[in-house]
Structure formats: structure tokens, C-alpha cells
Design a protein around this nucleic acid. Structure first.
Lengths: 116, 116
DNA sequence: GTAGGACCTGACACCAATGTGAGGGGCAAG
DNA sequence: CTTGCCCCTCACATTGGTGTCAGGTCCTAC
């Protein structure tokens, strides 16, 4: 499978597939002329990558996490810990925006008293 | 008051004060030699700008909003509408991250079934 | 007048994933 | 062999507030 076919099979842009390779998430074979050749398992792989992006992980986090996935069981605890750390980051992000929203509510309630 | 003094009075960096001017949030006088000269009301002004940043507004939004603040009353309704729009944006941001967190929870609960 | 600190402008760095374009090679069907 | 589409690499743009240089100028105290 060449890159365009994988792109349409997964809905991910060709550009992004090349980026994933650059980040080390995919390692396709190359044809003699240098074209990327992907096996059928790459579809699942790309879908997993997409799920991780949807889950709010950045490339850097995925670099940590992807090697653990599909490894034998002993790593499961470390993997879960890493994912929980990401979960905590998301919760912190939410809390931060909630604080911003409270600040904004305060400003709205003060309206009419500005004089600067 | 020169820029360094305003910076220490407000806790905002000199770099940021110059940026605020560039964005049109502040319009200090200039001395003959070109140095920025701020009046004492600038302290309040900078504090308001900081409050808006804390409230999660971006410079672009503040460009819309600042001219209304300190204007006579008739604009109050438009100003409030604008701030409520920003509030909605924050709520949307929160919802988006919450969805990411749910995706992550789903992934965590699936752990052990990965094979790619 | 000189030292040293405060100030000036302009510009690059950061973070992250993706879009986009240039310039060129590969491949299959007619 | 040509046409046309797919692929290749390299590289710049995007977003935004701030940090941080570099290379100069200004101001104040001595």
C-alpha cells in the first residue's frame, strides 16, 4: 500500500502520515525508488494514533507511550500510569479554563463600574 | 513614569508593555528622545488588561473590547454581548477537553487489548 | 566626561500539527 | 514516448504572548 492509499483508508492527510513517520510513529518500508510502502496493519496503527490525538495527547507524549503499547504485559502498569498522568494534565487544563471563566464572570458582573 | 517603573508597579514585563502598545492597548506619550512616558492612570489600565488576559481573552478580542470599556453607557449591551461570546468560547474549550478526557478514559479501560 | 543602568528598535525562538508550494522523479495506460 | 497522476524532499507559514539577543542611544550621578 502506498501513502495515498493509506491516507484515504484512514482519512488522515498524506502530509500527516509523513509527519508521523518523522516522529517515529510509523516506519514504512521503502520501494527501490524511495516510495513508502505500508503493510495492512498500518491502518490500525494510524487509527490508534488518531485515537491518541483525540485523547488530547501531543506527539511527545505519544513518543513515550507508543513503544509500550503492544509490548508484553509487564509494561502495562507503567503504561497506565503514563496515561493517567495525561489524564491529570487534561483535568488541570480544564480547571484552568474554568478559573478563567470565573474571572470573566466577575468582570461581567462588574460592568458599568469601569472608568479607565 | 517610564516603562521600567510601570513594569515594576504592575508586575508586567517591559517586553509585554511594549507589546501592549503595539496592539493598541496603551498609547504612552514619548519624550523628546523617544522614551515612553506613562501617566499614573496607566497602572489601572495595565491591571485591567491583565484581568482580561486572566479571563482567557486573546489580544484580538481585547482589541474589540477595550474601546467599549470606559465609553458612555449606551455601549454596555454590546460589551456584555461580546464578553458573553468569549464566555461561550471558554465553555466550548472546556467541553472539548472533557471529550478528550473521555476518549482517554476509554483508551485506558481498553488497555490490554492492544495488539498493534 | 565617564561609568553604568535604563531605554530604544528589530528580530529570532518557542510549541505543535498541518497546509502548502516548489522543483523534480516514478509509473501505468494510451 | 507522452500524458497525467502519484510520489519524493525541503522548507516556510500558521497562532500568540513573552523571552532574549544585538547593537545603539539616553540619562543620572559622580
Amino acid at each position: 500500500m502506498r501513502i495515498g492509499e493509506l491516507a484515504s483508508a484512514t482519512g488522515v492527510s498524506v502530509r500527516s502520515l509523513r509527519y508521523y513517520e518523522n516522529q517515529g510513529f510509523l516506519s514504512p518500508e521503502r520501494s527501490v525508488s524511495g516510495q513508502r510502502i505500508y503493510g495492512p496493519e498500518s491502518v490500525q496503527r494510524v487509527e490508534l494514533i488518531q485515537r491518541l490525538f483525540d485523547a488530547g495527547l501531543c506527539s511527545k507524549a505519544m513518543t513515550d507511550i507508543l513503544p509500550f503499547i503492544a509490548d508484553p504485559r509487564p509494561r502495562a502498569a507503567a503504561l497506565e500510569a503514563r496515561l493517567l498522568k495525561e489524564r491529570e494534565r487534561l483535568s488541570n487544563d480544564i480547571a484552568k479554563i474554568e478559573r478563567s471563566r470565573e474571572s470573566l464572570d466577575q468582570l461581567i458582573s462588574e460592568m458599568g463600574r469601569f472608568s479607565t
